[in-house]
Simulated assay, not measured.
Amino acid sequence: MEVKTRLFGTIEVKKDKQIHFVNGIIGFPEMQDFTLVFEETEEGKASISWLQSIQEPDFALPVMDPLILIPDYNPVVEDELLKPLGEMKAKDTFVMVTVTVPEEMKDLSVNLKAPLIINAKTRKACQIIVDNQDYSVKYPIYDILTEEKAGE
């Protein structure tokens, strides 16, 4: 299927690349169908990808794998919240966090409190709010990403 987007123009989204958020995402319950768009770099995939709405061309959220930032990121999630996604096996579970890009790049942050949980096998997903007090809504990442880039 062809999807028109504001950021990427018209893109081709195959059925097996569509992600269905059973209850939408927080703040946008009506938006349920998305795809991940990522830039290929010489080193592989870029750190930040985009969760692009299939229904709304103007809606795309920057997202990233939290393990790049915090290797031991492991939010506690009630099994009941994940039931609509189907059987969750570790190899099929993909976790992303949203990235906030403010005016000042040094204030770049991710939301560790409301991860996106994706079952890669069923292509169903949800966004949840974790109770763990160790995770913040605005976890600063600018220094981590610049240090990582300098180390390459």
Rank of each mutant, 00 (worst) to 15 (best):
M1T: 11
V3Q: 00
K4H: 11
K4C: 05
T5L: 12
T5D: 04
L7P: 04
F8L: 13
G9N: 02
T10Y: 03
K14Y: 02
K15P: 13
K15D: 15
D16H: 05
D16C: 01
K17W: 06
Q18G: 03
Q18D: 02
I19W: 03
I19V: 03
I19H: 06
H20M: 03
V22Y: 00
V22D: 02
N23A: 02
G24C: 03
G27E: 10
G27L: 04
F28H: 00
P29Y: 07
D33G: 05
D33N: 14
F34A: 01
T35S: 05
L36Y: 07
L36N: 08
L36V: 15
V37S: 08
E40M: 15
E40A: 13
T41N: 10
E42D: 13
E43V: 12
E43S: 15
E43Y: 05
A46F: 10
S47H: 12
S49R: 09
W50F: 06
Q52M: 09
S53F: 11
I54E: 04
P57T: 04
V63K: 03
D65P: 09
P66C: 05
I68H: 03
L69F: 06
L69W: 08
I70S: 08
I70A: 11
P71S: 09
D72L: 10
Y73N: 01
N74V: 01
P75D: 03
V77L: 13
E78L: 14
E78D: 15
L81V: 08
L81E: 12
L81T: 08
L82A: 10
K83R: 14
P84H: 04
P84A: 02
P84I: 04
M88D: 13
M88L: 15
M88S: 13
K89I: 07
T93Q: 14
V95H: 07
V95G: 04
V97I: 09
T100Y: 15
V101N: 12
P102E: 01
P102H: 06
P102K: 05
E103G: 04
E103H: 13
E103K: 13
E104A: 11
E104P: 05
M105G: 07
M105W: 12
K106A: 07
K106Y: 07
K106I: 11
D107C: 05
L108C: 08
L108M: 14
V110Y: 05
N111C: 10
N111T: 10
L112I: 04
A114N: 14
A114G: 13
P115H: 00
P115C: 00
P115F: 01
P115D: 00
P115W: 03
L116R: 09
I117Y: 12
I117P: 00
I118F: 14
N119H: 00
A120T: 15
K121T: 11
R123F: 11
C126Y: 06
C126G: 06
Q127L: 03
Q127N: 07
V130L: 09
D131C: 05
D134C: 07
S136M: 12
S136H: 09
V137D: 01
Y139N: 01
Y139K: 00
I141E: 02
I141H: 01
I144K: 03
I144R: 01
I144G: 01
L145Q: 05
L145M: 08
E147F: 08
E147R: 14
E147Q: 15
E148L: 00
G151T: 14
E152C: 02
E152G: 04
